[in-house]
Amino acid sequence: MPETLTALARFNAAPDVEAERELLSCCASRVFAAAVAAGRPYEDAERLADAAEAAVRGLGWPDVLEALAAHPRIGERPAGPGREAAWSRREQAGVAEETRRELAEGNRAYEDRFGHVYLVCAAGLTGAEMLARLRDRVRNDAAAERSVVRGELAAITRLRIGRLLGEAS
């Protein structure tokens, strides 16, 4: 726990530009990063995670789309050396190769229907579970799906805030 507090103290003391850059690895919306950075200092990790979740849920749809643009398709192996790519690889580790092909097909149908990447908080889910959720969600209407997407983005962001604090020590 002291390591988290130390990481939180460093985050709280960081210049705005640095704090926003760190937050962008948790949610790639500039509006999100500016809002959460502006709320510093945070008393504890839970308050930071709560503020991050509230900021995601309060984003306008164009800002959600900005964040979605940074997420790889579920089932694709994210490339690159960056923190966000590494986190995505870890979050999607449970996807078997045969399921990847089915996810690729499902992703195409989802993107054709909604115009953006299918987003699911993949941590702890198997590839089959992610595929089942995709198949269910492709039947949503646009308003319902936007609500689900916000919830998934908030959950991913909350997990990544925890990782940010854990990795910052």
Rank of each mutant, 00 (worst) to 15 (best):
R89W: 04
I74S: 04
A38T: 06
S147Q: 15
E53R: 11
V148Y: 05
E145F: 09
E76P: 02
E20L: 05
L165T: 03
E3A: 14
G162L: 08
V138H: 02
E97R: 11
T126V: 10
D44P: 02
G60A: 15
C121T: 12
V138T: 06
V64D: 00
Q92I: 04
W61F: 14
S25Y: 06
V117Q: 05
G124F: 13
E102F: 06
R150W: 10
E20T: 09
C121L: 10
L8T: 00
A85H: 03
H71E: 14
C121G: 05
E98F: 04
A70E: 09
E97S: 11
E3G: 12
L24S: 02
Q92S: 06
R139C: 10
D112I: 12
L59R: 01
T99S: 03
E18N: 08
D112P: 00
L134T: 00
E22S: 11
T4N: 05
L125A: 12
V56H: 01
G127F: 05
E3M: 13
L134R: 03
M130I: 06
M1S: 14
E3D: 15
E152C: 04
E53G: 03
V148N: 02
A37L: 03
D63H: 13
A93Y: 04
E22P: 00
T99Q: 07
A14W: 03
G94V: 01
R108S: 11
A19D: 01
G106A: 15
A51Q: 07
A55W: 01
F11R: 00
M130L: 14
H71M: 09
A45N: 05
I156N: 02
G80P: 04
A142K: 10
G80C: 07
E66Q: 12
V31N: 01
G166M: 14
M130C: 13
E3P: 14
V95T: 05
G58H: 06
D44C: 13
A96D: 14
R101G: 07
A9H: 12
W87C: 00
D50W: 02
G127N: 06
G58N: 09
V148K: 01
E46L: 10
A7K: 02
C26T: 14
Y42C: 00
V17T: 13
V120T: 10
E102A: 11
A33G: 09
L23W: 01
A104L: 14
L65M: 11
E66M: 04
P81R: 11
G162H: 13
G115Q: 08
A144M: 08
L125W: 11
A144L: 11
A109S: 12
V95C: 01
G94N: 14
L24K: 12
A13Q: 13
R21N: 06
H71D: 12
L153M: 15
R133Q: 13
C121A: 15
A104H: 11
E129R: 06
Q92F: 07
E97H: 08
L134H: 01
L131Y: 02
S88R: 07
